[in-house]
Simulated assay, not measured.
Amino acid sequence: MQIHSMWDDYPTLKKDLAKTLDLMSSSIDLPNKEIEQTIIELFHSGGKLLRPAYLLLFSAFGKNTDKKKSIALAAAMETLHTATLIHDDIIDEAEVRRGVTTLQTKFDKDVAVYSGDYLFIVCFKLLAKYTDSLRSIKLNTASMEKVLLGELGQMNTRYRIDITVDEYIQNISGKTAELFALSCFLGCYENGGSTKLASNCREIGKSIGLAFQIVDDILDYSQTEETIGKPVLEDVKQGVYSLPLICALEENKAFFEPILIKKDQMTDEDTRVIHEGVITYGGVEKAYQLADHYTQTALDLIQQLPNNKANTKQTIFDITKQILTREN
């Protein structure tokens, strides 16, 4: 079992994340054991497990922390996240995820689609078994809708060189930020936290998710495929334009348009020119400025959390600062 090394300094949390992965794995029961094993390998492929980690951390702000329930809810959130990754890989025709061959490459797209759908069911089974409130089920359903709307919004803006920053933010608010927000909310609320406090936790999670996705998109322009575990600038060929490129387009659309109109026929040389152009026209710098805005918003809100004996607030602050200022 692989737990990301970033949790080495937090042994209790690392142990709970290991239990989360165990529960996720034991919840998978498919007739085709090869597919089952491939899904489990994806669970254990070294992802950062940020969403379940935040859920577990924010559970400390409830009045009656229930570790078993929190681990189950964390497993539900990461299972849901994995389902969206499988569907992302189908749309992107990705061959590798975190160094592991994707389901749609190892088998076919039909198997991958049904595997992703199956994980949605696993997620809701865990929620139905362990949540105390119908509100949490409703919120999870609403969050799923926002995630899917974010994905659809991204598809609707494919190959559009006039996509705006506001449209990008709207898309990632659903696609990425919503699961962070829900994880923070459920951790607090399902462990007896007040509605007001849980709502504040949700806002923290949303800001973290927005900053995280922007930083992730920036890394496409500053890291290699080996470093980040996926092909760099592959999204551009698929017509998905992230914040650095959008900001650069605002500065000099004429530079990029002759290349971008080639769509999925772009060459490696084309992507190299785009990469250099995004840096030259300040796309990365402007994207960092917006990432810094959401990062600071998250950190300021975290500082407003109540103190507790375990000093969880400081732990959340330190982890958030670490992941939102990361370079890989």
Rank of each mutant, 00 (worst) to 15 (best):
L219N: 11
I3C: 15
K309P: 11
P306L: 12
A198V: 13
I91Y: 12
G277E: 00
M6E: 14
L57W: 15
N191D: 03
L233I: 05
S59P: 14
V113N: 02
Q289W: 12
V113P: 04
E190W: 03
T224M: 07
Y114N: 05
R135T: 09
H275A: 09
S25L: 01
S45R: 04
G282I: 08
Y54T: 06
E41G: 03
F124L: 02
I204H: 05
Q154T: 01
L197A: 09
M6A: 13
A298C: 04
Y118H: 07
F180V: 09
D108A: 15
G193I: 00
L210M: 00
S25C: 02
S173R: 09
D270Q: 13
S207Y: 12
K146C: 06
D162Y: 04
N32Q: 11
G192K: 02
D268F: 08
T82V: 03
I39E: 09
H275P: 00
D132C: 07
H44M: 00
S27W: 04
P258Y: 01
M77K: 00
K14T: 04
A83G: 07
G193P: 06
A74L: 08
I28T: 05
R135M: 15
L148E: 11
F43Q: 03
G187Q: 01
K106L: 07
V96Q: 13
E226T: 09
L152V: 11
G209W: 00
I228A: 03
I208N: 01
D216Y: 04
L127G: 00
S115M: 01
D318I: 04
R272T: 06
L299H: 13
D117M: 13
Q223F: 09
G283W: 00
G62Q: 12
S133F: 00
S194D: 06
S25V: 08
D268E: 07
D220V: 12
Y168G: 14
I91D: 05
D9V: 14
Y130I: 06
G187S: 01
P52E: 11
L305Q: 04
G62L: 15
K125I: 02
